[in-house]
């Protein structure tokens, strides 16, 4: 008889990659969905919801692939709803609370500036199904990047208050950017299944640095970079996020919804 409702995952390399990217998409999509009903303006309600829906869609496609790659024992919802916080593999940046609108936009910009070129390269993956997911995701992340950049400009170079908030958000989130470039599994990179994140650092800087300057924001100094998300060592925030996300499935084990 099971003593916990959590599942055990066979984390072979491909499954590991897919869970990393799926968890990223799910956690960020979930965070963005928290804005529903509370956005600064009605038009932005719809924009943030679009971002969230894109990301949840990506998570579903990636989890579904992981389910098949693992051998068919689990489904997409098992990965999302029945893994504990220590099993999640998302970046620390993405599980940070939304904060104010500036923090949400800064988080989106820092992530999208990485993931968009990464998806672009991943669309050439030697693994066809992953290439297909990447090609679709890249179109979405391109828009996410543009949307975040447009807003960062307006917040950084808007009023004194918006500038202060944007700068504060940048300072708070900067220590989580190092994790973006942590290397992927060498075997997968060698087999051209996915690009290696360190290779994207230059492109990311090429996007982010000029944008910060144009937005009259100061680039924070590179201090110690937080790490651990890829190994399941998360901030305290993820536990609370998953408590909400997983509540129904944990409370009613085995039920269909």
């Amino acid at each position: 008889m099971a003593t916990t409702t959590s599942i055990t995952v066979r984390e072979i390399p491909l499954v590991g990659l897919l869970l990393r990217r799926a968890d990223d998409a799910l956690v960020l999509g979930h965070r963005l969905s928290e804005w529903c009903g509370h956005a600064p303006v009605l038009e932005e309600e719809l924009a943030l919801a679009n971002l969230a829906l894109d990301l949840i869609g990506q998570a579903r496609a990636l989890y579904a692939f992981a389910a098949d790659a693992e051998g068919g024992q689990h489904g997409e919802d098992d990965f999302a709803y029945l893994r504990d916080a220590r099993q999640f593999r998302n970046l620390l940046l993405l599980e940070q609370p939304n904060g104010d609108f500036a923090a949400t936009i800064v988080r989106q910009l820092l992530y999208s500036a990485f993931i968009d070129p990464w998806w672009h390269l991943a669309a050439r993956s030697s693994e066809p199904r992953f290439a297909e997911i990447a090609a679709k995701a890249e179109k979405e992340s391109a828009y996410h990047l543009r949307h975040a950049a447009d807003w960062l400009l307006r917040l950084g170079d808007g009023t004194a208050e918006s500038h202060r908030r944007a700068q504060a958000a940048l300072e708070w989130l900067w220590p989580y950017t190092g994790e973006l470039f942590e290397p992927e599994a060498p075997d997968l990179v060698a087999a051209s299944v996915c690009p290696d994140p360190p290779a994207l650092r230059e492109a990311w800087q090429g996007t982010v640095f000029p944008l910060l300057a144009e937005a009259t924001l100061s680039r924070p100094a590179d201090g110690w970079m937080q790490t651990g998300g890829r190994a399941g060592r998360h901030s305290e925030h993820l536990g609370h996020l998953l408590s909400e996300l997983q509540y129904l499935q944990r409370s009613y084990p085995g039920a269909q919804w």
């Binding site: 969905s33 309600e45 719809l46 679009n50 909400e244 996300l245």
Partner: peptide, 22 residues
């Protein structure tokens, strides 16, 4: 939305609420 019990339900509910905003 944050407690929707499956990913499909989560996406459907978010899309529905987004429609209402629209």
């Amino acid at each position: 939305i944050t407690r929707a019990p499956t990913l499909k339900r989560k996406a459907a509910l978010l899309a529905k609420v987004q429609d209402e905003g629209g």
